[in-house]
Amino acid sequence: MRPKLRSPDCLKDDDSGDHDQNEENSTQKDGEKEKSERDKSQSSNKRKAVVPGPAEHPLQYNYTFWYSRRTPGRPTSSQSYEQNIKQIGTFASVEQFWRFYSHMVRPGDLTGHSDFHLFKEGIKPMWEDDANKNGGKWIIRLRKGLASRCWENLILAMLGEQFMVGEEICGAVVSVRFQEDIISIWNKTASDQATTARIRDTLRRVLNLPPNTIMEYKTHTDSIKMPGRLGPQRLLFHNLWKTRLNVP
């Protein structure tokens, strides 16, 4: 039932670089087998299959919380992926969601230039992820003081499958900035207008937005090509992604 969103290659690249020194030791097939067993257990440490506990309420999809923050005063290009974006954890049920959410600060209380991301498990909160590369996002700019409440309503609607657009939703982001906060919801197919319209209308409903609220849809390819007001975030992810690809 759950779609396979993450390609096996993506899974591997998280661990690349970790096993180089082991390779020389295992020359025989048995060694190889042992190594792959070890790899499996290593990656399962990171990504143990998350399932709903007994008597918990399962969600349609598993989701992962991420957090990122731009270090002030340093060019984004010198920052490594690990320094800037952290996986907080993955959950599979309503109760597990609350366990994370209740032990995280509200976005309105974050300091500096930071973001919370909540994406389906297996989708990285980056434009370049397979699930995102043909996608886009609805953006709503909020004056200070509204982010916590709007973020909560947004993610509850996403977790509760209120958008009714099949597999289209990828995740949601709240970006805390100096003058304003921004929430956005990402979907897979930017060209699918029926879907993007339905997401927009659902957003208006679940966020109780006044009718004159400006909502902006941006395709990720446009975001990559044109520096926008989300420039720093764009650069951050773009550079991080490049850094990751350079890992031997």
Partner: peptide, 9 residues
């Protein structure tokens, strides 16, 4: 159960 922090937080 929703009030316990996750072990691996």
């Amino acid at each position: 159960v929703a009030k316990t922090p996750p072990r691996d937080l």
